[in-house]
Amino acid sequence: MNMLARNRNPRGLNFELSTQPLEEMVKSMFSCFPGFRSDLVFGGQIDTKLDVSVKDKYVEVKFPCPGRCKEDFEIEVVGDFLTVRVVDCGKHKACCDDKRYVIRERVCESYEESVKLPVPVKGAETRAKYEHGVLEIAIPRMSEGKNGTHVVKVS
């Protein structure tokens, strides 16, 4: 399990690099142009495939990955970190090799992404299903009292 969430910077830097001063400068220079988005310059979070949303009782993660089978996925939850790996179980790659491609845009490479979940979760109770090319993961949220936080009533 990779305990470090994958750096979402598309340039692949593996250390924390603060681009905030530069980002502010670019924003001030180009903010007069309609439609300017600084995340297009600095990467932001547009390259991630994991869509995380926090519900009342669980954290929902959706991962679009069409054309796979459920055996291709490895899911790990360690602490507040979720890691999803997509590995080819063999049959996908084998059926790609001997075809005459006119256009080939679909990717069948292995993929791995880790994300730090925004709230504490019960990793052991994680459920996942693969339907219509989307991997859906539901991780129950940990109740606040179990996270080392104690609510003390003032009497």
């Binding site: 491609y101 256009i103 080939r104 845009e105």
Partner: peptide, 8 residues
């Protein structure tokens, strides 16, 4: 969407 076009 991404596509593959395969000649058969």
């Amino acid at each position: 969407p991404a596509v593959d076009v395969i000649e058969e």
